[in-house]
Each structure stands twice: as C-alpha cells, then as structure tokens.
Computed example of a mutant assay.
Amino acid sequence: MGTPVGVVGDDALADVLRDAGVAVERGSDGAVPKADRVVAVGEDAVATVARAEGDPLVLPVAAGRGVRSVPRDTAVAAVSGLADARIETHPVLHVTMPDGTVEQAFWDVTLVTADAARISEFTIASTADRIGQFRADGVVIATAAGSPGYAHRVDGPILAPSNQAVVAPIAPFATDPDHWVLPVDGLSASIERDEATVELLVDNRVSRHVSYQESITISLGSSVRTAVVDESQSRFE
C-alpha cells in the first residue's frame, strides 16, 4: 500500500485511488490531511492546501494550467509517477489589509467595484516606485499560477513559475491601458476616488470593502511545491 496520499476536493477520486491500491488519507471537516503527498482536485482545493500548514508535494488535478494539473481520468497513473516528478515552486501571497490583518492568496487578489456601471481610480506602487494610476472597474494582481485565469481574460500575459505578478486593470477607462509584470513582494494597491464601493477578493473569496485612501500591501509568504509528471498539461496550450 505504501505511504498514504492525502486527497482534498473529491471523495469519489479518493475512492478510485483506493480501489487502484493507493493508500489514501482524507482530511476531516475540511482539514488538509497531514501527508507528505497531497492530491488536490480543483482550483479551490489547491488554494486550500496552499494556505494550510505543512509542506506537502501537491499533485494538482483538474485545477487549470497555472499549476500544470493532470486530467482527472489520469490521476491514478499520475500518483504512480510521483516518485519521479519534477517539482515546481509557487509562492503564497500575504495580503495585508488596511486594519493590519493578513490573508493568504494563491491565485490572485482583486479590487473591483461592487456596483454595476461604476468605476473607481486605483494606484499601483512598489517599495521602490509608483507604477501607475488609472480609472477602471478594478484591478487584478495575479501570481504566475493565477496568470492564466482572470488576469489573462483581461489581456494579461501568462507567466512561468516565479515570484512575479501580473497586474492588469479591469475594464479600464483608457483605450490603451498598461499591464505590468512586477516582483510581487512589496506591491500595493490603493483607492484614489470616493465614488464607488470597492470589494477586495482574495482567491475569488469576497474579503471586505476597501475605502477611499485605503490600501492593501502584498508580500511573499511560504512556497508550495507542485508535482509535474508525464500526465501534467502544458501551461501555455
């Protein structure tokens, strides 16, 4: 049977792996199993494992291109190949709120107006420079893992694994908006106009409202190790 493999996000797949002779450990009450290797099924499961304590080797299944996931129907073969897997490393972001509390993000951080047909104004800055100021519906700051997601749908590029981020305005007022690829550590985003309610989303979870003249700051947290096996899909196709 070997060392147990944790499974998060799909009890049916856990049963398939067990039927194939894989020792499986499931978390209870949504907890991540204390296993050296964890199969994470879907984007939410990958983010859950990334935010949890520990340093397992994560096999993403049906979780998008950013983490080179494997199709669900190849998961048994992929688990069998974990011993020979190549490892990619992805950062977890610490997002510091205006009140000093900290949340964690794996895919992206988004500021967006909550009201239809309303725009706001945003400033993006680093520890060394002011990057840009623009009027838009919002702005998304995506990790390399998150870059093929919403950031790409608003014309941001797809990044290879790194500690850089894609910063992309959402429905900007300008006809030729800038997009930036920047070191993620020390980035900040602030609200410059008191015209609309702005929501903060962390990995697509609504966190809170961010008010006029308030800002969020992003820093690097821990890293997540993901497995790349023969069944892993390309990030760029």
Results as ranks from 00 to 15, higher is better:
residue 60 P to V: 02
residue 61 V to M: 07
residue 62 A to T: 12
residue 63 A to E: 00
residue 63 A to R: 05
residue 63 A to V: 02
residue 63 A to D: 00
residue 63 A to N: 03
residue 64 G to C: 06
residue 65 R to M: 00
residue 66 G to T: 03
residue 66 G to W: 09
residue 67 V to L: 05
residue 68 R to V: 05
residue 68 R to G: 11
residue 68 R to Q: 12
residue 68 R to I: 02
residue 69 S to H: 11
residue 70 V to L: 08
residue 71 P to K: 01
residue 71 P to C: 03
residue 71 P to L: 08
residue 71 P to E: 10
residue 72 R to C: 04
residue 73 D to W: 04
residue 73 D to Y: 04
residue 74 T to P: 03
residue 74 T to C: 10
residue 74 T to Y: 09
residue 75 A to H: 04
residue 75 A to D: 06
residue 75 A to N: 01
residue 76 V to S: 01
residue 77 A to F: 03
residue 77 A to I: 09
residue 78 A to K: 00
residue 78 A to F: 02
residue 78 A to N: 06
residue 79 V to C: 09
residue 79 V to G: 04
residue 79 V to S: 04
residue 80 S to M: 09
residue 80 S to G: 15
residue 80 S to E: 15
residue 80 S to N: 11
residue 81 G to R: 13
residue 81 G to L: 11
residue 81 G to T: 10
residue 82 L to T: 09
residue 82 L to R: 07
residue 83 A to Y: 13
residue 83 A to E: 14
residue 84 D to S: 14
residue 84 D to N: 09
residue 85 A to M: 05
residue 85 A to R: 00
residue 86 R to D: 14
residue 86 R to M: 12
residue 87 I to H: 13
residue 87 I to E: 15
residue 87 I to P: 08
residue 87 I to R: 15
residue 89 T to S: 09
residue 89 T to M: 10
residue 89 T to V: 15
